[in-house]
Every structure is written in C-alpha cells, then in structure tokens.
Simulated assay, not measured.
Amino acid sequence: MTHSDAPEGALDLPGYARVYSGKVRELYAPLDADGTPSEEVILLVASDRISAYDYVLDSVIPDKGRVLTQLSLWWFEQFASLVPDHVLSTDVPAEVEGRAILVRRLPMLPVECIGRAYLTGSGLAEYRERGSVCGVELPEGLTEASPFPEPIFTPTTKAPLGEHDQPMTYAQVEAEIGPELAAAARDMTTRILALGNEIAAERGILIADTKVEFGVRDGGLVLADEVLTPDSSRFWRAAEHEVGRPQTSYDKQYVRDWLTSPESGWDRGSGEAPPALPQDVVDATRATYVTAYEAITGRSFD
C-alpha cells in the first residue's frame, strides 16, 4: 500500500513500514538494520476511525484509538493467567503514543471467534424462528436480553472489507482449523466472556457478546488484537438491564441507531456508503467510549 491510498489517520512513521490497513487499525513493521521489515514484530496502531454495517465512516471519534488500546491492555492483564497474549511493549513512537503497542507477529486463526452471553441482535431473530442461535440449541422461553445458561460460541467467517461475515457451524470451524484448535478457540472464547462478565458486572457493565482474535504460537492460542472493548463487544448498563426490551449500551450502538434513524437519511439497503456523523453524535460516542473505559478499569481517562 502506498502513501497515496492510505486511509484517514494513517501515518508515515520513520523506521517503520506500513504493511496493512484495516477498518480501524494500521499495522507497521519495524525496519531491521538493513532496512527490511521485521518478520517477528508488528506495531499495532488503533486509529480514531469507526465502522458500522461493514462500512468505515467518514467521521472519526476523538480518542477512540487510545480507549481501545488502553482498555485492551487492562484486559490482557486480567487474563494473564488464562491465556498468553501478543503484547511485547508499549514503548512506541511518540506520534502514536497511547494508541499503539508492539506485538508479536503471529499467524491468525481464519475464523471470527464470537461469544454470546445474552440473547440479542441477529441471534434473537434466529431464536424466535428456530429456538437456536447460530445452530446452538437454547432453552425455551428466552426473549430479548435474556441471559444464556452459559456463554455460547457462534463463529463466523472473516469476510473482506465491505462484505458480510457469514455464520459458521462448529463442524466448519473444525474443517477449517482442525478439531484441536477449534475446541481450544471455542473454550477460550467462552471462558474469556464468562470471566470478563464476572469482572465487568462488579463495575456495573454486562457484556452481552464479544469477538476475540487468536493467533497461534507453538501450537497453542495467543490472545491478539483487541479484547472486550466497545468496538468488539456489546456493553450494557447492569443497573438498567431488563429482560424483554432493548438495552442501554456503552458501545457504538449509538452510531448504528443514528445511521438507521430517519435523521440520517441513509437507506441501509441502498448499497451507498453512510453519511458522516453530526457533531453531537461524535461527541456522545466519544463520551460513551470513555465512560466504558472508566467504569471497567476504575481509572480516569483524561
């Protein structure tokens, strides 16, 4: 990728080569003494870009990259005894301080590992029709925001930017990565969500569902990318949780709701990119992300 096609927020960092731009992240490889990009280490930079409905929006959310990075680091510490992570150092270039980490370069699982602890979203429609979510059979009598007896694993494909991830059966995951890694990914995804909920519930937040990323090292899983952030998870306010109705969120649901409201003028089925966010939505989204960070970590963001 050349500088000319760099996305909003991408930087030229001396001593680093940019090797990938995702929806909201940039990956840079440190240059070795001979000027070749490192094969072992990656600088993972979280931008302030925001995505919704498989589009990267024209608007940015100030400080979002810092929130995602610092909250992920906090969670990596909480899960240290559960699963190794990819973090090597937070000693990063000044231009990206606070929103970047140096991580181990790993082969990544080609599967989106999604865990769900409550019934909501696309899972609710399937449950009403079939009594299951992503093929996982569930008890009768559940409704919007009902907790599951225990977290379930509902993997999807990893679709290219602009395309939709597709649900996968567990048998398809086994065929893709083998039965041992499939079982490890399923068990670790649900354990992370269960432990995350134990910790977050004490701080007034319920984690309805989440997506986690795993790399592989020495045949075992390594927790990578981000973990339990407002971008990768659905956070609800515990004090306001009430089964049978939509919940108040601490995540980018605020953005999704505006985009699908008459005020935005956008038709989700039109195939056209969404409009830029108005300033009040940008400000409210930033405040939501910061509030989630402060509630979970107990630390002041600013």
Score class of each variant (00 low, 15 high):
Met1His: 05
Met1Gln: 00
His3Asn: 09
Asp5Val: 12
Glu8Asp: 07
Glu8Thr: 14
Gly9Ile: 05
Ala10Glu: 01
Gly15Ile: 11
Tyr16Arg: 03
Arg18Tyr: 00
Gly22Cys: 01
Lys23Cys: 01
Lys23Phe: 00
Ala29Ile: 03
Leu31Asn: 05
Asp32Ala: 15
Ala33Met: 12
Gly35Thr: 11
Thr36Tyr: 02
Ser38Tyr: 08
Glu40Asp: 13
Val45Ile: 12
Val45Gln: 01
Val45Glu: 00
Ala46Lys: 10
Ile50Leu: 06
Ile50Thr: 12
Val56Tyr: 05
Asp63Gln: 12
Asp63Thr: 14
Gly65Thr: 13
Leu68Asn: 13
Ser72Gln: 06
Phe76Asn: 03
Glu77Gly: 09
Gln78Pro: 04
Ala80Thr: 13
Leu82Trp: 10
Val87Trp: 07
Leu88Arg: 15
Glu95Trp: 02
Gly98Val: 09
Arg99Met: 06
Arg99Gln: 05
Leu102Lys: 11
Arg105Gly: 00
Pro110Gln: 02
Tyr118Leu: 04
Tyr118Arg: 00
Leu119Asp: 03
Gly123Asn: 02
Tyr127Trp: 03
Arg128Trp: 00
Glu129Pro: 00
Glu129Asp: 07
Val136Asn: 11
Glu137Thr: 15
Leu138Val: 08
Glu140Ile: 05
Ser146Glu: 01
Ser146Lys: 03
Pro147Lys: 00
Pro147Glu: 04
Pro149Asp: 01
Phe153Val: 04
Phe153His: 02
Phe153Ala: 01
Thr154Asp: 07
Thr154Ser: 09
Thr156Pro: 02
Lys158His: 07
Lys158Met: 05
Pro160Thr: 09
Gly162Pro: 12
Met168Glu: 11
Thr169Phe: 08
Tyr170Arg: 14
Gln172Phe: 10
Val173His: 12
Val173Gly: 14
Gly178Arg: 14
Arg186Ala: 13
Leu193Phe: 05
Leu193Ala: 02
Asn197Asp: 11
Ala201Gln: 15
Ile205Met: 13
Ile205Pro: 04
Leu206Thr: 14
Val212Gln: 08
Gly215Trp: 13
Arg217Phe: 11
Leu221Phe: 08
Val222Arg: 13
Leu223Ala: 03
Thr229Arg: 10
Pro230Phe: 05
Asp231His: 10
Arg234Cys: 04
Phe235Thr: 09
Arg237Trp: 10
Arg237Ser: 00
Glu240Tyr: 07
Glu242Ser: 06
Ser249Met: 11
Ser249Ala: 14
Lys252Asp: 08
Tyr254His: 11
Trp258Asn: 03
Trp258Arg: 01
Ser264Ile: 07
Ser264Pro: 01
Trp266Tyr: 03
Arg268Val: 07
Arg268His: 06
Gly269Phe: 12
Ala273Ile: 08
Pro274Met: 03
Pro275Trp: 03
Ala276Gln: 00
Ala276Gly: 05
Ala276Pro: 00
Asp280Trp: 10
Val282Tyr: 04
Thr285Glu: 09
Arg286Tyr: 08
Val290His: 08
Val290Arg: 06
Tyr293His: 15
Tyr293Leu: 13
Ala295Asp: 15
Thr297Gly: 09
Gly298Lys: 14
Ser300Cys: 13
Phe301Lys: 10
Asp302Val: 12
